[in-house]
Amino acid sequence: MANKIILEVDNLTKYFNTPGGLLHAVDGISFKLEEGKTLGVVGESGCGKSTTGRTILKLLQPTSGKIIFDGEDITSYGMKKMRRLRQEMQMIFQDPFSSLDPRQNVMQLISEPIIEHKLLKGRAAIEKRTRELMDIVGLAQRYVNVYPHELDGGRRQRIGIARALAVDPKLIVCDEPVSALDVSIQAQVLNLLKELQREYGLTYIFITHDLSVVKYFSDDIAVMYLGQMVEKAPSDLLFQKPTHPYTKALLSAIPIPTVGKERPQRQLIKGEITSPVNLPDECRFNKRCDFAHDICKKGNPSLKEIAPGHFVACSRVDEFVG
């Protein structure tokens, strides 16, 4: 079942000039995303996952590479040309406390994109659609005049989702949409996002640091480290056969909420993520890696397909698989 490819990212890079040197926030990311699927992007803070999401949406101008959305190369599109495409690509932000303008009420917040893109004419029609959107995201009608500061995190995040949905997008980049919420609320929002995907055939890029959330949510998972993808595989495969040493460490670091049952052996990785400034040409993980060898210092490994759909960027991958 080859679905239509809705997004193709080819060798995307985003560098920032900093006083310390060139910061490689995103360094050569490539992937294809089928319509209606979810790609989970996982990594620790500073690995460039948020920058990747923002660059794909052209909120940041990429340094090099290609972004092809729905068959259209949007890499060089400016602000004006992008405006039309904003209807098709939307974003849900991490912090429901700062991503809503505190001076707008729920009605204004949700209707803003409808008015901006002139999707409907006339106040009555806009209001009706806004109320409909509130229903869809499970926000009671009585909150229509309420301001965000009067609402809790879960409801605010629902407003954020309604705003994104208002323009009927095809692709939504979710940047840590549930990490600021309590567990019970987290589950409510995750269920909502999943339902919406089924209903409207949405495609998600789901950025998170929480591996347990992506497993539940994604078809494919890409693990990022220092601006690069180190492993990408279908979700189940990644959890069954993590191959890159970093992925393994990341998986074993998740605290498991069970007691008394057999617990897998912890693989602690030493040290911390280094800053992605002026990187030498070697495996970016080799200083923290337990399996580092001389070969790891010779050149930065690129992604290699070790099984259908399973890509790993590790110089010693053949030894691990074989």
Binding site: G154, V183, S184, Q186, L190, N191, P257
Partner: peptide, 24 residues
């Protein structure tokens, strides 16, 4: 029980989470 049911990592992928309804 609700807290445990809300956790995604115990579940298999695709299964619906069972969040506690409502708010604190």
């Amino acid at each position: 029980e609700g807290l445990f049911d809300s956790l995604p990592n115990l579940k298999e992928r695709g299964e619906e989470l069972q969040p506690i309804k409502g708010l604190m």
